[in-house]
Simulated assay, not measured.
Amino acid sequence: MVAAVLLRLGVDEFVALEVVVLRFRPFLRRCQVPSLAVSLLLPMLCAPAWAQNLVVVVSAKSDAAKLTVDQVASIFLGSVKSFPGGEKAVPVDQSPGTASYIEFYNRAAGRSEAQMKAYWSRMVFTGKGAPPQDAGDGAAVKKLVAANPNLVGYIDAAQVDGSVKVLSEIK
């Protein structure tokens, strides 16, 4: 069971979990709660916050077709500037450090937040590109994307409505 929990959590989440367990160890001892039990139960309680169903969206008015995860990664990493149909594609990011940002880049590009920061620092320094516009949270991304058919962003699947169209699911 411990192995399953460790596989489900990323390194950053495991470190955060360890910090929580260590910080509350005196309280847990007073309450006669074994720290191993807390270590095993805490990730299960918090897993829904980490495990999100992210989708890549464009305006409902856009003619863009479905995208593969590799195509999405290419757009958000700046190596591709248009959708497969030829329409301009301008990526819009959520704020670095948010759960959605971390999940998106882990799943779509296979990169951690630190790796993305290093990637964009390198790209900006060499003049080869700039990071996507930071829109804030999912609601702000949806609002921007819905108003401009050239913008593409990612949001939680629960936020999808008639104003946006899903191009890809990030699993």
Rank of each mutant, 00 (worst) to 15 (best):
G138H: 04
I170V: 14
A130D: 06
V72K: 05
L67C: 08
W50Q: 03
V55T: 01
V56Q: 10
I102A: 13
V21E: 00
K81M: 06
K142C: 06
I155A: 04
K142D: 07
F24L: 03
V145F: 06
V33E: 09
Y154R: 03
T98N: 07
A73G: 04
V33A: 11
E113L: 06
E13F: 03
D161F: 05
W50H: 14
Q159D: 09
L36S: 10
L67H: 12
L67G: 04
V38Y: 06
Y101G: 10
V145P: 05
L42I: 01
S163W: 02
R23H: 12
T126E: 09
N150C: 02
D63V: 07
L167V: 02
L77V: 12
K88E: 03
S95V: 05
A73K: 02
I155T: 06
S74Y: 00
G162F: 02
D70S: 08
R29Y: 08
P43D: 03
S100V: 00
L167K: 03
K165G: 02
K117F: 10
E103A: 14
L28S: 03
Y154M: 10
V58L: 13
V15P: 00
V141Q: 03
Q133D: 07
M116R: 04
P149Y: 12
V124I: 09
G129E: 03
A60Q: 15
A60N: 13
D134V: 13
S168R: 07
A147I: 02
R25T: 08
V21S: 08
E13H: 00
K117W: 10
V57P: 01
G136M: 12
G138L: 03
V2N: 12
A157W: 05
L17C: 09
A114Y: 09
S74A: 15
A64F: 01
V69E: 11
I155M: 11
Q115H: 08
E87P: 00
V15W: 09
E13G: 14
V38R: 04
R29P: 06
G85I: 00
Y119N: 02
D63P: 10
F27K: 00
I75S: 10
R23V: 07
A118S: 10
Y119K: 06
S62W: 11
M116T: 00
P84T: 00
A135E: 07
R30F: 13
D156K: 13
A51T: 01
V57R: 03
A60L: 04
V57T: 12
E87H: 04
K165M: 01
E169F: 12
A109Q: 10
L151S: 07
V58P: 04
V15L: 14
L41D: 11
P34N: 08
E103Q: 13
Q115K: 15
Q159A: 08
S163C: 06
G138N: 08
L6V: 07
D63C: 13
D12P: 03
V152S: 08
A157E: 15
V21H: 11
L54C: 01
A118K: 13
A64M: 07
A135N: 04
V72N: 05
N148D: 15
V72C: 05
V124P: 00
P131F: 01
D134T: 12
D134L: 09
D156V: 06
V80I: 10
Y154A: 08
V164E: 03
G129Y: 02
G85C: 07
